[in-house]
């Protein structure tokens, strides 16, 4: 199974939200990483076929997804960033409805719904109306509905937004427990979401793919570019003007900072083990990036 985008482009008037994107997905988890406004949602909507591209195509095994139509949607599980739901439906009713739309047999649906509700930790709330659900609970319903048909192509748009740290870890566990015979595309602006689970990472910036590689390769490419240093307040101010700074912690001895730089930034800087976050900072800078 090979899902591909070819020169995929979306313009909103003058603005180019997605710019000539060529990607290839095969089995595995793909992290689509980029700051807000990078074009993740736009790209994803075109991949799931709910937004007509300005230019370019999406194919599955060399067939246009519009041509596959129902066959493509049968393989698809999609959780939108801004997830829709019916306020008057209970969680169970809602999932039953989606199961119906996905063509599940009622018996099969019943079992699947129970398993999924259990998996996302909503078994106790299944009889409650969605209108009374918190944002985090709605997200969990959203994840459950995407998984109903055991999709071979699972597309999740910012699935962890609005989840608390515990829910986020739980979500990561859900993903890593999914069998791997599928394509999972997971968009986020939070590095830690994809760090441990994504096999490949796509960095998206201003609608363009700036890197698309495996996790290891990305980390490998950063070797020698990541430094730790303990500096004074004045030094920190100076470094900020010259280099990209990641985390900075105040310690008794001064500031312990992470610096991403091609050259050694200060005398006492020591080379550090690169993390995915360093990759992100390297490409997007550290300042306007909110690290939650």
């Amino acid at each position: 199974m090979k899902l591909e985008t070819h020169n995929l482009t979306k313009n909103y008037g003058e603005k180019c939200a997605v710019d000539n994107v060529n990607l290839e997905f095969e089995q595995g988890i793909y992290g689509l990483l980029g700051p807000n406004g990078a074009g993740k949602t736009t790209l994803i909507k075109m991949i799931v076929g709910i937004l007509p591209p300005t230019k370019g195509t999406v194919t599955l095994d060399d067939t246009l997804i519009s041509k596959l139509d129902e066959k493509y949607r049968d393989l698809l599980g999609y959780m939108p960033q801004d997830i829709g739901y019916y306020r008057t439906f209970t969680a169970k009713q809602f999932l039953e409805y989606i199961a119906l739309l996905k063509g599940l047999e009622p018996k099969e649906a019943e079992k699947k719904i129970d398993t999924l509700l259990d998996m996302v930790g909503l078994s106790d709330a299944k009889g409650k109306r969605l209108g009374q659900f918190s944002g985090g609970m709605i997200r969990r319903v959203g994840i459950a509905q995407a998984l109903l048909n055991d999709p071979k192509i699972l597309v999740l748009d910012e699935p962890t937004a609005g989840l608390d740290p515990k829910e986020r870890i739980h979500f990561r566990n859900i993903l890593s427990e999914l069998s791997l015979d599928r394509i999972v595309i997971l968009s986020t602006h939070i590095v830690s979401d994809v760090e441990s689970i994504a096999g490949k990472v796509i960095l998206l910036r201003l609608g363009k793919v700036i890197t698309f590689d495996t996790n290891e390769n990305l980390l490998h490419s950063m070797e020698g570019k990541v430094w730790d240093a303990t500096v004074t307040h004045q030094e920190l101010d100076r470094l900020k003007t010259q280099f990209t700074i990641g985390n900075a912690f105040q310690k008794d001895s001064g500031f312990e900072v992470r610096i991403v730089s091609d050259v050694k930034p200060t005398e006492n800087a020591t080379p550090a083990e690169p993390s995915l976050e360093d990759v992100f900072i390297y490409h997007f800078g550290g300042l306007d990036y909110d690290n939650i």
Binding site: I50, E70, R73, G84, Y85, I98, L101, K102, Q145, N149
Partner: peptide, 21 residues
Amino acid sequence: DEYTSKMHGILLTCKKGRKEV
């Protein structure tokens, strides 16, 4: 109402969410 509740994104990606719905 489907647009207002933002459900159509989900509907349109379900197997039976287009013709059948």
